[in-house]
């Protein structure tokens, strides 16, 4: 994305009022303001050879004051020593924490070499972490430091799929399969985190049913749309669309397929979810909610009702893809 997300034309097309999508608009404005401030403040925070990205809600332009920051630092070993890259990443994380950001040291706990993300896609050494980096850098990676190198990183990732000699497929199938693989991985990862690792279940449950599912739906729609484009236009369209926020890329895919109106239901349901995520009290209540107590929680029931509406809207979108791009949906999205 180049600059702020402008949802206004889409919402006007959909006949949505600002009130109906107030939280989507607020999240987009919050993300742009944060990114601008961080970029200005971190201009010299990393040495050459490294790029820093915000992934997650900030990278999707869906953040709020309650959001954490998924910091990814990618480096090129021919330009910077790995140990120096790790130290730079630690300094940057400390800087961000000093600015009040909650920077978790989870998947993105250390700087990663670009070659590690490219060299063995699908192979023995291709870890879930590598898959996560690739999927998120391609679809929700907003640069924080060294924009020049960030652009080169994202282009290298896309190029790793686009330049596949045997496996890329006419529809860039290796990329769509890898994105689907990431989605399925996080769906299963939910089970481990909640059942075995003692993590809070409720907020993850609702993220799976909203932001994760929308991310997957958007990719599905984009690839179904791309399949109908002339061969020489497909890669470019995909490269332009993938970094856009999921609601926009779903809309851009559905518009030429005659299904744009179906986005209104998605936006309305998603707006309610973002409202809850932006509310620190609601987040705290979800963190403290025991699984057996869920039916007694008005917040849980409200969010679950929203998730049902979101499912209905998403199902309608898939139904439209079935009608308009069935061959691709079935052969590449399902089989």
């Amino acid at each position: 994305m180049r600059g702020p997300v402008d949802y206004a034309p889409l919402f006007a097309e959909l006949g949505l009022t600002a009130d109906e999508a107030a939280n989507v608009l607020a999240a987009a404005a919050d993300a742009h303001a944060r990114l601008v401030a961080l970029r200005a403040g971190l201009a010299d925070a990393l040495p050459p050879g490294c790029a820093a990205f915000a992934l997650g809600s900030l990278g999707r332009y869906e953040s709020s004051a309650a959001s954490d920051l998924d910091l990814a630092v990618v480096y090129q070993p021919d330009r910077i020593d790995p140990a120096a890259a790790q130290q730079a990443r630690q300094r940057l994380a400390a800087d961000l924490r000093a600015r009040g950001y909650d920077v978790a040291d989870k998947t993105f706990h250390s700087a990663v070499a670009l070659g590690a993300l490219l060299g063995d896609i699908g192979g023995r050494n291709d870890t879930n972490d590598h898959l996560t980096y690739r999927a998120l850098l391609l679809t929700e990676g907003a640069w924080l430091c060294n924009a020049d190198q960030a652009a080169a990183v994202v282009e290298s990732l896309f190029g790793a799929y686009a330049r596949g000699a045997i496996t890329r497929g006419r529809y860039l199938t290796s990329l769509s399969n890898d994105l689907q693989r990431y989605y399925r991985t996080i769906c299963v990862d939910y089970r481990f985190k909640v059942e075995s690792a003692g993590k809070h279940w409720a907020i993850r449950y609702f993220k799976l049913r909203h932001s994760r599912k929308l991310w997957h739906l958007a990719n599905l729609a984009v690839f179904c749309r791309a399949a109908l484009l002339p061969d020489d236009e497909r890669d470019g369209w995909l490269a332009e669309q993938l970094p856009r926020p999921p609601l926009l890329r779903t809309a851009d895919a559905l518009r030429p397929l005659g299904g744009l109106g179906l986005c209104a239901g998605l936006v309305r349901a998603y707006d309610g979810f973002l409202a809850a995520l932006a509310d620190p009290q609601a987040r705290r209540a979800l963190d403290q909610l025991g699984y057996d107590d869920r039916e007694a929680s008005p917040l849980f029931r409200r969010l679950r009702d929203g998730a049902e509406r979101f499912d209905a809207a998403a199902t309608a979108v898939v139904g439209h893809l079935w009608d308009t791009s069935r061959d691709h949906l079935v052969r590449y999205g399902m089989l």
Binding site: V36, A147, D148
Partner: peptide, 16 residues
């Protein structure tokens, strides 16, 4: 911008 250099001015402007 987009070819030889980065970023766009819009990525640093609070209100482009």
């Amino acid at each position: 911008i987009g070819v030889l250099a980065e970023p766009s001015w819009r990525e640093l402007a609070p209100t482009p």
